[in-house]
Nucleic acid binder design. Sequence first.
DNA 1: CGCACCCCCTGCCGGC
DNA 2: TGCCGGCAGGGGGTGC
Length: 284
Amino acid sequence: MPELPEVETIRRSLLSIIGRRIEAVEVVEPRLRRRVAENFASQLVGRLIEGIERRGKYLLFHLSGVLPEEERANRRPFAGGESLLVHLGMSGALLLQSAGTPRQLHDHVRIRLSGDVQLMYNDPRRFGLLRVGHTAEFVELGNVGPDPLAETFSAADLAALVRGRKKPVKNLLMDQRALGGIGNIYANEILFRAGIRPGRQARRLTRAEIRRLLGATRAVLRSAVRHGGSSISDYRDGSGRRGYFQLRLRVYGRAGEPCLRCRTAIRRTVHAGRSSFYCPKCQR
DNA sequence: CGCACCCCCTGCCGGC
DNA sequence: TGCCGGCAGGGGGTGC
């Protein structure tokens, strides 16, 4: 479910919990993609949430240290600190609720916060991940490449990623080590907007196509964030709100339907085991 | 390196 | 109505 725009929307919807203290943690179902650690709750209780950061499809909830007040005042937040790392997998949701909201099906972890609210982790398929540790030491984050929305990410950077890569450009877009945050929906939409077929060898892209690809990546992701992400089936942000970008999808899930630009039937193929959708006329 | 293929898990949809 | 196969936004592992 959640790609960069959805994760970013969730991050923004949870900013009100910054400054709150973690009062209690209840792990109902520890069997996620990785089993939730035995000491998960004890690592969290008593600490403050100092900030929420997104890296690719991961969320980091930066935690205050468990230090005496005067030492804490001298420490820069985020610098070498610890955090709660969350990945939502295919079906995960983080819901901000009033404290004591009754548990629903697939509510696996409840984090009760000061101010009578709670953060509920719900995940039907249980492909998500929750762990606490030193921010700099999460192995998962070592696989997350640069954020395509970062101002510092340039056409030259994209050209460097493309260089020498024989794999289809769609696989490159979805490779989290190359770029952080793009999944199957947005890879398809970006390539449609750029007019490039998903199966094109990355190294065969011309300079003009690379510029178009970067422009399309930014435009599609920004627009999706602006519309609160895509609610294909059950995605919700932290307040339970749906996104609306699914109404603006041009090719994803539209196999056999007419291209919105030229009416040619949209084709479906498979790259790296995931469905690709493209217009054979508009994309070359 | 690239990729085909498997796994993890539940839900939903279409066909029969 | 019910059962079954296929598919789904994720990542990770293996073997070629």
